[in-house]
């Protein structure tokens, strides 16, 4: 109760993901790789993806940074598993929209799943970048599709 405002930001799910990040490993033979850096704080996220029949079958994430960055990376890595690259990109746009203050429909919120717990970040504008870093890395990864050598 002591830190009610902060608890809105640092939901239990966020702190839990930060302590036990999912898919935190580097894939040895990825089909796609990408990364993103936040020059403001120096935080970095790297992503590798293995595709099977056009869907994301495996994802490896190395997120260095604050709890918002790490928790979003962990949740996002779970959320995109099984999606096509186009679906993953739609989810990215949906999340970015939520950070930008867009009202999501019930169906959209459903697709976001646990990522909805990050809505509190909107109240801390300087931290929005932290939540978007993984999505920048995912976007970078998706954009490497079809590049020579990948």
């Amino acid at each position: 109760m002591e830190h009610r405002l902060l608890d809105e930001l640092y939901q239990d799910a966020i702190l839990e993901h930060r302590r036990s990040p999912r898919n935190r490993r580097e894939l040895a033979r990825p089909d796609l790789v990408g990364c993103a850096v936040n020059p403001f704080c120096g935080d970095e996220v790297a992503v590798q993806i293995v595709l099977e029949r056009g869907r994301i079958a495996e994802i490896g994430v190395q997120a260095e940074g604050c709890s918002i960055n790490q928790a979003t990376a962990s949740m996002a890595s779970e959320a995109v598993l099984g999606l096509t690259l186009a679906q993953a990109d739609t989810l990215r746009a949906l999340f970015a929209g939520m950070m930008g203050g867009a009202d999501l429909s019930g169906e959209e919120r459903g697709r976001m799943g646990e990522l909805n717990t990050l809505a509190g970040v909107r109240e801390y504008p300087v931290r929005i970048k932290c939540a978007l870093l993984i999505w920048g890395a995912i976007e970078d990864t998706i954009s490497s599709y079809g590049e020579p050598g990948v």
Binding site: L6, G65, S67, Q70, R127, C130
Partner: peptide, 13 residues
Amino acid sequence: DVHPHDLGTFLDQ
């Protein structure tokens, strides 16, 4: 244990 940005947000409160 705590990233500096998380500390910064906490201290700001």
